[in-house]
Design a binder for these strands. Sequence first.
DNA 1: TATTGTTATACTCTATAACTATA
DNA 2: TATAGTTATAGAGTATAACAATA
Lengths: 146, 146
Amino acid sequence: MPDLLHGDENEAAVNSLRSAVMRLGRRLKHQRVDESLSPTEMSVLGTLARCGSATPGELARKEHVQPPSMTRIVALLEAKGLVRLEPHPDDRRQKVVSQTERAEAMLEESRRKRNVWLASLAEGLDDDEWAKLRAAAPVLEKLAHL
Amino acid sequence: MPDLLHGDENEAAVNSLRSAVMRLGRRLKHQRVDESLSPTEMSVLGTLARCGSATPGELARKEHVQPPSMTRIVALLEAKGLVRLEPHPDDRRQKVVSQTERAEAMLEESRRKRNVWLASLAEGLDDDEWAKLRAAAPVLEKLAHL
DNA sequence: TATTGTTATACTCTATAACTATA
DNA sequence: TATAGTTATAGAGTATAACAATA
């Protein structure tokens, strides 16, 4: 029984995590690397960069967004030339969304910009704190999908 | 030069963190412990529980929200009987916000409800992962305020 | 009949700008 | 003149409900 050992600590961690996630989320909203891209749009591009391509439904599930919201997001990305929509080979109801070359270039550029923010953060965190963040990052990702 | 040792890992962590924070934030929005309380309202109550009392301006800065937004949030909390507003002793422009007994009871109740969600999460994370979350939680809090 | 995606609509949260009162 | 808070308004992002097309 793993959690019984640290039940209270886990609960405290969840409280702390929730508060921190909400506040960090608001900060991240303001420090967009690209002014014209919302956090979710950015996240979708990141997913496509990792997975190659996906249907709108898959993207909606991954981003924890309802299908109509993803329809809108994909349409915005397409209008910006960052995403391509193609018919699904097997199922004519579905569509296949994939990133364009322009999206790849934009992600590279945004990575460069992110380093500026990263540098400013690095001044406030020590090695040990960074190590803890690196260790927790994959767990947070897992948590977001659990 | 601390960060040069793990510069790439830190950058990857930041990418991963941002994505995870945005997705987790959306999940948390949906799993409110109290349907009638927004995440920020909840966060404000948490802050008041920790700090005792604060002015609207202090709360706005802590939550990374603009003053007019905090005005609205405080008004909503007051209407729900969770917060009390009193005149500032030294400065008649300011106000002092503090939580009511009802807020304390509600926080206790919400803590109980949170355990349900916690229990479901515990099934998906092992001891090691929980340890990483516990270690990173204070760093995330710090990051949110940096 | 179930599922994928879309359209139309409304809501929640936050921001900006302009204003009031106090310092 | 500067600061704390408020009012009024607008905008971004998401949700729900109803619908179309395909399985």
